[in-house]
């Protein structure tokens, strides 16, 4: 998973992002102002930076040049939601521009997109004898390749990317099947059951009562 720098002066928001990113397996460093951000880049190599615009000292628009020089992709995460700021941010070389308030799943998905664009797909994920390899697009259990349909594979990928986070049936339909897919949430249930059976993951893919499913990894 990725090593991510959060530059955000509001501690509660910074903590919120940190908790969510760590939950799905990223590693995170927090910086609360521009000086901390710059010194953090000296000590670490980051795969991505989530950058607020309004910061004490140098603001996000001034900071992004430093990240560009270090080839660290930047996603702006800010309350400034005007079109001019958006255009300015993207023109300055940001990979994406997310406005507050944001949804956790959306943030994770956009991070995923940027990571993929920079040739850093998810590393192979191993848990309870199951080996999920995105580079090969294969799933093995105890070394044996398990045959999954394309749809089952897509569903598993979404669950792993958002592991430890509950996904509603609607959200799963939207992400794993596509926005234009018109189907019933029963479809999701059926695919989940098949996945559980094929991977023997009855207790890993948990049902969240009246909501959806969650891949629980300890």
């Amino acid at each position: 998973m990725a090593h991510i720098l959060i530059v955000e002066d509001e501690k509660t928001i910074s903590d919120l992002i940190l908790m969510n990113l760590e939950m799905v397996g990223h590693t995170v460093v927090q910086a609360f102002d521009s000086m901390e951000a710059l010194s953090a880049t000296n000590d670490h190599h980051f795969d991505l930076c989530l950058l607020d615009i309004m910061l004490p000292g140098l603001d996000g628009f001034q900071l992004i040049d430093s990240f560009n020089k270090l080839s660290i992709p930047v996603i702006f995460l800010t309350a400034k939601d005007s079109l001019t700021d958006r255009v300015k941010g993207l023109n300055q070389g940001a990979e994406d521009y997310i406005t507050k308030p944001f949804e956790t799943l959306e943030l994770l998905a956009r991070i995923e997109v940027v990571m993929r664009r920079f040739g850093k797909p998810n590393a192979t994920f191993v848990y309870k004898e199951v080996e999920f390899s995105p580079t090969e697009r294969t799933v093995r259990k105890g070394g044996q390749i398990i045959n999954l349909t394309a749809q089952e594979y897509a569903l598993l990928e979404v669950l792993i990317q958002n592991r430890n986070l509950a996904l509603s049936r609607d959200k799963l339909l939207e992400v794993a099947w596509g926005y234009d897919y018109i189907g019933e949430t029963r479809t999701v249930d059926m695919h989940i059951q098949r996945l559980r059976k094929k991977l023997d993951w009855e207790d890993v893919i948990k049902t969240v009562y009246k909501y959806g499913y969650r891949l629980e990894v300890s």
């Binding site: 509660t12 928001i13 992002i17 908790m19 969510n20 309350a79 507050k100 308030p101 956790t104």
Partner: peptide
Amino acid sequence: NTPLTSIQGYSEFLIKANASLDQKQRAAQN
């Protein structure tokens, strides 16, 4: 916007995340 973002984010976290008791405590606190 800032407090709303936090409240929305932490409540979403409480609902969805397979979080530890300590994490839940922090979220509620925030």
